Amino acid sequence: MTDPTYLRLGVPPTASRLAVVRAAVRALHPNTRAVCGLRTARKRFYRQMLCAHVARQAADDTSIG
């Protein structure tokens, strides 16, 4: 099951990891990005989005071949 937050980023399965991180950064509210105390939570969020992206790419690879 794909993370609903990842689906809202709107990145295609062929997107690079950098494009996924950029979309994830844009998805966060500016106030959330500005709070230093939430740095660990932001990093965890970015990692989750990258993991969801890798899982989606793997699912697309298995469905094609």
Rank of each mutant, 00 (worst) to 15 (best):
Q48A: 12
S16K: 12
T14S: 15
A55S: 13
P30T: 06
G10S: 03
P13K: 03
P12R: 10
N31W: 04
L28G: 10
G10F: 06
C36E: 11
T40G: 12
P13H: 11
C51Y: 01
T62Y: 05
R47F: 01
L28Y: 07
R44V: 00
R33W: 05
H53N: 00
V35H: 14
T32D: 08
N31F: 05
P4Q: 02
R47D: 11
A19Y: 01
M1Q: 09
P4C: 07
A23K: 05
T32K: 00
R17Y: 01
Q57W: 06
L28P: 04
G65C: 02
L28K: 09
V21I: 14
V11T: 08
A41K: 14
T14M: 01
L18A: 15
C51Q: 05
R42Y: 10
L50S: 03
K43R: 15
F45E: 03
A55T: 09
G65T: 07
T5Y: 02
P4S: 05
R47V: 07
A27C: 02
H29M: 09
R8N: 05
M1T: 13
T2C: 00
H29T: 14
A59W: 14
A34S: 15
D60E: 15
T62P: 01
A59G: 08
D61W: 15
L7G: 00
T14N: 03
R22S: 03
M49D: 01
R56L: 09
R56G: 01
L7T: 12
A52W: 03
P13I: 11
P30R: 04
T40I: 07
R42S: 08
R8D: 12
Q48V: 01
T40E: 15
S63M: 12
D61H: 15
S63I: 05
L7F: 00
V21N: 00
G37M: 06
V35C: 05
V54D: 14
A19W: 04
L7D: 07
R56H: 14
T32A: 09
A59Q: 14
M1N: 09
Y46M: 11
P13Y: 11
D3K: 00
S63Y: 10
M1Y: 10
V20G: 03
R42Q: 11
G37N: 09
K43Y: 08
A59K: 13
A59Y: 10
S16Y: 03
F45C: 02
K43N: 12
L9D: 03
A34Q: 14
R47Y: 03
I64Q: 13
A41M: 12
C36I: 10
A52H: 03
L18Y: 09
P4G: 02
R47W: 08
R26I: 00
A55V: 06
R47L: 11
Q57I: 13
C36Q: 13
I64W: 06
C36G: 10
V11P: 02
R44E: 10
V25C: 09
L9H: 05
S63F: 08
N31I: 03
R44D: 12
P13C: 05
L50R: 06
